[in-house]
Design a protein around this nucleic acid. Structure first.
Length: 596
RNA sequence: GGACCGUUCGCUUAGUUGGCUAAAGCGCCUCCCUGUCACGGAGGAGAUCACGGGUUCGAGUCCCGUACGGUCCGCCA
């Protein structure tokens, strides 16, 4: 027998029991004739004691033990006198007196330290170079941070599955080998042995399958679905592969869908974490309003600092940066940074740099003091207008007003970035808060400056608001879609939409984006044909599992939530993937590799 | 594809205006220690400062290039 108990479960009530424990040597404290080892497994630490007088053979083995050796011990659980209790250890009131020990496997000195204190908030694991952690992930997984994250992720997906099933959803696995789609992300391709020159594609998302499931009458579908995209990484976007809670429903309006799904986010947040939810029900923020007030379609609404428009106030003013922006069709907008008046010049310069990175030419500001205004732009603006602005923007002494003046998109991007930075710098972000919101009413189309044509803004399968009539009568750039996002703490958890399941509306929408009927049929004909056989109205979304876990666990990136993540260049450094394959494999697949 | 930041013993870091024979804590090795719990004590090993070039009497430090890593932009319907 390897173990009668785990290393985390023995306590006072077990005193006197003969037990067997197996685990890793976490730390070893050698006192000469007495050796203490903290034995570690997934469940915790237990102190085991080797006594040279009572059990010389076991003690002799213990002398040779080193960190991360895997051992099995037998012994008797002994209570510790009060002064020897370790209050930091759940098992600290007992220890095991070892009568026999077996080395199950030895270990090289690990490349980084594994041992941890059992205390809450141990952050030691965060400091080791991540490349090294990924190369030796199997060791990294023994550490508290990864262990707890994997346990959390498991609880999260279990909770989701139970909730979904309870609410009438059924989980359906959709194919991993599917067809390449010219739209969207770059596909991972899989060559076909039986069909020379042809390729499967790994699914970027089960989008088309889930719509076919709706046509098939599965009116509440979900899947914790792998999504594979050959695109570059970000902190919240792993390269290659990630998981989504893919959801689709039939016969629900957008608002009914929100009402159905919100409790999932509320319940999982409140059940699995100590975090609080900012607002219930979640705010619905139209896209245009999000862009105007927060400068982004994924606002962090845990703090205010909303962007205000002052275009009309400064249209005629003496500060040419403002008036010229207005005259050339742009806007002037402002953020009142509460309590920012104490910022140093160099701090303001750093904020200016943030604005510049987002294509702003600069960052005008007015520091509001008790009895005066201090600003490099007042001499152009005039004292009177400056005071009017302060009043209109409701700025108080101690605040600083930051301005953006340019075309709408640049002002949104630059002030949005400044707002996010101010949120951090002014310590306005409550990290115990989960601020969910729905962003709704995305535009159906956008103008593609490079190609000088109208493009889909998001998903071409979204239903335009106003239907066919809107497509036929409105300026395409003014048409909104039943297209929405769910956002939390400035992170987009998911897009979603009411789908367009009417072939006529589909063809017309594609026509506006410059596709002929033949082109649409070539790409999506199989799906549109299905819509000709009675497609129900449907909507859905697909929140990213890792992004949710990352927010709920306060982790800075998605790799901390993934057991075996790819690095930034989409490599598995531990397994050595991707790798070359042998010539025979290539031959069977009818592949010739061109090395250039 | 582009921008920025980084790379110093196994790990984490320090290294000032160029003076380094490169420092510390942890870890590792040897020895001592029967109540420690991140044990303690004594001693020791371990670094061509990512790589290549340049400036200089002299480069870890300054400059150029390359590689690798991270963050961001592009991309992600």
């Amino acid at each position: 027998m390897f173990r009668s108990h785990t290393c985390g479960e023995l306590g006072k009530t077990d005193v006197g029991k003969q037990v067997t424990l197996s685990g890793w040597v976490n730390t070893r404290r050698d006192h000469g004739g007495l050796i203490f080892i903290d034995l570690r497994d997934r469940y915790g630490l237990t102190q085991v004691v080797f006594d040279s007088e009572k059990y010389p053979p076991a003690w002799a083995v213990a002398e040779k033990l080193r960190d991360e050796f895997v051992i099995r011990i037998e012994g008797v659980v002994t209570g510790r006198p009060p002064e020897m209790v370790n209050p930091h250890l759940p098992t600290g009131s007992i220890e095991v007196r070892v009568s026999g020990v077996e080395v199950l496997n030895s270990s090289k000195t690990p490349p980084f330290e594994v041992s941890y204190l059992p205390a809450e908030g141990d952050t030691s694991t965060q400091t080791v170079n991540e490349e090294l952690r990924l190369k030796y992930r199997f060791i990294d997984l023994r550490r508290r941070r990864m262990l707890e994250n994997l346990e959390f992720r498991s609880r999260l997906t279990l909770f989701i599955r139970q909730w979904m099933v309870k609410n009438g959803f059924i989980e359906v696995e959709t194919p991993i080998l599917t067809v390449s789609s010219p739209e969207g992300a770059r596909d991972f391709l899989v060559p076909s042995r039986l069909h020379p020159g042809k390729f499967y594609a790994l699914p970027q998302a089960p989008q088309q399958y889930k719509q076919l499931l709706m046509v098939g009458g599965i009116d509440r579908y979900f899947q914790i679905a792998p999504c594979l995209r050959d695109e570059d990484a970000r902190a919240d976007r792993s390269p290659g592969e990630f998981y989504q809670l893919d959801v689709e429903t039939s016969f629900m309006t957008q608002e009914e869908f929100f009402t159905l799904m919100e409790p999932l986010f509320i319940e999982l947040t409140e059940t699995l974490t100590k975090k609080k939810i900012l607002r219930k029900p979640f705010p619905r923020i139209p896209f245009a309003q999000a862009m105007a007030k927060y400068g982004t379609d994924k606002p962090d609404i845990r703090f205010g600092l909303e962007i205000q428009d002052v275009t009309s106030m400064v249209a005629e003013c003496g500060f040419s940066v403002f008036s010229e922006a207005v005259n050339s069709g742009g806007v002037v907008r402002a953020i009142v940074a509460t309590g920012a008046a104490g910022m140093s010049r160099s701090q303001i310069d750093e904020l200016t740099e943030v604005a510049r990175k987002n294509k702003a030419k600069g960052l005008a500001y007015i520091v509001v003091k008790e009895d005066e205004l201090s600003s490099p732009i007042i001499k152009f603006l005039g004292e009177e207008l400056a005071l009017e602005l302060v009043k209109e923007l409701n700025a108080k002494p101690g605040d600083t007003i930051f301005f953006g003046a340019a075309d709408k998109a640049i002002v949104a991007a630059s002030l949005g970035a400044v707002r996010a930075e101010l949120g951090k710098r002014l310590d306005l972000i409550d990290s115990t808060m989960m601020a969910y919101c729905w962003i709704v009413d995305f535009p159906m189309f956008e103008y593609n400056e490079q190609e000088k044509k109208v493009d889909f803004c998001h998903n071409p399968f979204s239903l335009p608001q106003g239907g066919l009539e809107a497509l036929n009568t409105q300026d395409p750039l003014t048409i909104l879609a039943y297209q929405y996002d769910i956002v939390c703490n400035g992170v987009e958890l998911s897009s979603g939409a009411v789908r367009n399941v009417t072939p006529d509306i589909m063809y017309r929408a594609f026509e506006i984006a410059g596709y002929t009927r033949e082109q649409v049929d070539a790409k999506f004909g199989h799906m549109i044909r299905s819509f000709e056989f009675g497609a129900p109205p449907e909507c859905g979304f697909a929140p990213g599992i890792e992004r949710m876990a990352m927010l709920l666990r306060d982790e800075p990136n998605i790799r901390e939530i993934t057991a075996f993540p790819k690095n930034g260049r989409a490599e598995d450094v531990m397994m050595g993937a991707p790798s070359e394959v042998d010539a025979q494999q290539l031959k069977e697949l009818h592949i010739k590799v061109a090395h250039d």
